[in-house]
């Protein structure tokens, strides 16, 4: 059985220039990866002896607005044989964030990547079906970005009853 130190050392030995940082927080380890190489690192994590991270548990998007780099995508990998969980993370710039897809490595990456695209607008290059997944297909904008308006509707009270009623859409019979 490997432990976290040996796993991280073997990844860093394989990709010395690609692993930009290793962050430990309360026993969880995060490897910051150069975005262009994420698929290669994930493939190594899946196939190498002593790692065998065969399960992609989740893909998450993060918006660090107003910091730069603004966006991040984190991949949670789990190894059944080693019983270890690590997180790979890529940081992306604000204008046109894009990262290679992981669908060639993990076929389960398809829907999570669509969700990250839908909510954060991160483009996954090479994704076989890069549509929205949660919002309607004709939706504009990406709702989980921090500069996305919440879409508040004015609450109707007695003093503004008529004004709110006039603005409210109503159906045909």
């Amino acid at each position: 059985m490997s432990d976290y130190q040996s796993v991280i050392e073997s990844i860093k030995a394989q990709f010395p220039d690609v692993v930009q940082d290793v962050v430990e927080f309360r026993g969880e380890y995060t490897l910051v990866i150069e975005p262009a190489k994420i698929a290669e690192v994930a493939r190594f994590c899946r196939d190498a002896d002593g790692l065998e991270f065969t399960i992609l548990s989740d893909i998450g998007g993060i918006d660090y607005y107003p910091d730069e780099p603004r966006f991040a995508v984190s991949y949670v990998l789990f190894s059944l044989s080693q019983n270890l969980t690590i997180r790979l993370k890529v940081y992306l710039q604000e204008d046109s964030p894009r990262v290679p897809t992981l669908t060639d490595v993990y076929s389960s990456a398809g829907w999570p990547e669509r969700e990250v695209y839908d909510m954060f607008g991160v483009a996954f290059e090479g994704h076989p079906d890069p549509r929205r997944i949660l919002m309607p297909f004709d939706w504009t904008g990406h709702p989980l970005r921090k500069d996305y308006p919440l879409g508040y509707e004015e609450v109707q009270f007695s003093f503004n009853y008529d004004r709110v009623k006039d603005q409210k859409p109503s159906p045909r019979e």
């Binding site: 919002m135 709702p143 919440l150 879409g151 509707e153 409210k168 109503s170 159906p171």
Partner: peptide, 19 residues
């Protein structure tokens, strides 16, 4: 009327689309 979900994703009352 949309209830507690006063946001972009939820219809603010189903009376916007059906009587």
């Amino acid at each position: 009327c949309g209830g507690i979900f006063n946001n972009y994703a939820i219809l603010q009352g189903v009376d916007e689309i059906v009587p």
